[in-house]
Structures are given as C-alpha cells and as structure tokens.
C-alpha cells in the first residue's frame, strides 16, 4: 500500500522568488525507510512539511499539486488524525517543546490523542527506556544537553507510534554511538510495527545501510532516488551535488576505479571491510 504520494507538488514561500519545492512526484510504499539528503536550503524541510501538512496550513505561499496519505488528500485530514498518523520531529528540538518538564513533554502527544492511563504509562516507560532519558523526566527540557534535547524530541514523537514518522535531522547533535542506537531503534520499530520512516540527514554514513531508498533533493527537485547500492555508484555526481559517500564506500569506489575491485559497492561498514579483505587477498599473495 502507498503510504505517501506527492503529485506535481510545488510550494513557494510568500516573498520568495523561487519555488522551494518544485514539481515533485513521489511515491513511498508503506513500511519503507526513506532517507532524504541534499545541501542546505534545497527544500528538504519544505518537502517533509508539505507531507505532514504544516505547509500550507501554517504558512503563507503558493501551493500546487496534491499530497496523499494512505490515499487521502492530506488537506482533508483533521488535526488529531494527522497527529496520530504522521509523527514529525523538528530539526530544532527546542522549537518543538511545549512543556516545562521532560515527562510532560513525553506524554503531551499521548494525552492529545486520548490514550488511557495505562497505555500512556507503558509507552512512557518504553520510550524512555530505549532512548535512555528516564533520568531526565524531572528536568526542564531547556536545561539538558543538546543531544539530550534531541533524544527527548524524538522520544516524544516515537511514543505516539504514528504510522508514518518523519524525522528532520534528528541526530545532528548526537554522539556517533547515540546516532547508531537511535537508528537501530527506528529500524526495529519499523520492522515490528510496519511504520514508514522518512529521515532527513546530512550525515549519510549511518543511515545509508538502513535505507530502502535514498532521495537526493537539489534545488527543490528530486535529483536522484535509488536504493543505497545504486545510489552511490556515481560518486562524482554526488560530490557535485554536495554529498560525500561514506568513507568505506568511497575507499572501495576508489579501488574500483583503479581496477582493483569489480564487485558491488558496499554501503555499510561491514560490507566495506569484506570488500577490502577480498581485494587484499587477491592482491597480496
């Protein structure tokens, strides 16, 4: 089933000359993991805001085209239904906070969709456990470290277990191991609950191996969309569009260009090690 479908979608913020998103046609199947990459100011946030329906509801500008969520025009979906179907983690965690303690922040969305006490309680425990923020419950969300803020922001949306979850640069302030753990969580949730996940990220290294599709936004348009194995096979194109492949991939790609390797490009670290070993075995006696 199609989770998201954008048809001829264009949006221009009022007062801007150019369209921030232009003529986007995009279909995303249910239960896939899609990563959106691209340089700053090229329309990533705008695209996901259109999907969530924050655009056009809360912004001024010009809109063409249509976005469908599970087959329904997203402008006809009511606030609460939208909240429980599509979760959205903002790029700036602070702009997402509505409460003065972390615990309130985590249950805020759950209360709004009217979940009973026990469910709220269990979700709260679950989400705090896996995102390691239980000891922060009593603190103000403004008085924790940058990475902790980001965890709280992710957890407060994850707790709602929406069918589609959009995360805008969710791990930009997390440490490398923290990034891994958040994406592990997302993958697990995806597998267990049929969730559809869209992640906007600058740092491609961690998400590439997890993604079913990688989408490159460039000047408001989709410049490339492919599964990770294909996505990296033209590294010059990527570098021209401001994207650096993961180091292991880049290294094997160089080996390939220099004629040492002729297999498929690895997208994750383990694949990189395997390919390197292969090459080394062949080229050392």
């Amino acid at each position: 089933m199609k989770a998201i479908s954008c048809q001829e979608l264009s949006w221009k913020y009022s007062g801007r000359k150019r369209f921030a998103v232009e003529n986007v046609n995009l279909d995303i199947e249910e239960n896939t993991f899609v990563s959106i990459v691209g340089p700053n100011e090229h329309g990533k946030t705008t695209l996901v805001s259109c999907i969530k329906g924050l655009i056009p509801a809360n912004y001024h500008g010009i809109w063409y085209g249509k976005v469908e969520i599970f087959g329904e025009d997203n402008r006809n979906i009511t606030g609460q239904k939208m909240a429980s179907e599509v979760g959205y983690v903002f790029a700036d965690p602070e702009s997402q906070f509505t409460s003065m303690t972390v615990e309130e922040e985590l249950v805020f969305g759950l209360e709004n969709i009217g979940l009973p006490f026990q469910v709220v309680h269990d979700r709260l425990e679950w989400v705090s456990e896996i995102t390691l923020i239980k000891e922060l419950w009593d603190k103000s969300p403004y008085e924790i470290s940058g990475g902790q803020k980001q965890r709280v922001a992710i957890a407060s949306v994850l707790a709602m277990k929406p069918r589609i979850m959009i995360l805008d640069e969710p791990t930009s302030m997390l440490d490398p191991i923290g990034k891994d753990s958040i994406f592990d969580i997302m993958t697990n949730v995806k597998n267990e609950t049929k969730m559809t996940i869209i992640v906007v990220e600058h740092n491609i290294e961690q998400i590439a191996p997890l993604s079913d599709q990688i989408l490159l936004m460039y000047e408001g348009q989709i410049a490339k969309m492919a599964p990770p194995e294909e996505f990296f096979n033209n590294s010059d194109f990527l570098v021209d569009h401001g994207i650096l492949p993961p180091q292991a991939t880049a290294f094997v790609d160089r080996l390939k260009q220099d004629g040492f390797y002729d297999g498929v490009l690895p997208v994750d670290y383990e694949g990189g090690v395997k390919a390197t070993r292969q090459v080394l075995q062949r080229h050392t006696a």
């Binding site: 606030g79 997402q96 509505t98 309130e104 709004n112 009217g114 709260l124 709602m160």
Partner: peptide, 24 residues
C-alpha cells in the same frame, strides 16, 4: 507548529467527543 503537529486542540475534546486524557 509544535502544538498542531502533536494534535493539540482548543476544545480539549477528541474527535469522537471524548475528553483529552490527563496522565500527569
């Protein structure tokens, strides 16, 4: 944006007419 994104409404009612829950 933050309130809308997580389904907060002025009425405090759910779409099925029930009251918003109050865990805290």
């Amino acid at each position: 944006n933050a309130l809308v994104a997580r389904g907060y409404t002025l009425s405090g009612k759910l779409e099925n007419g029930n009251q918003r829950s109050d865990y805290i």
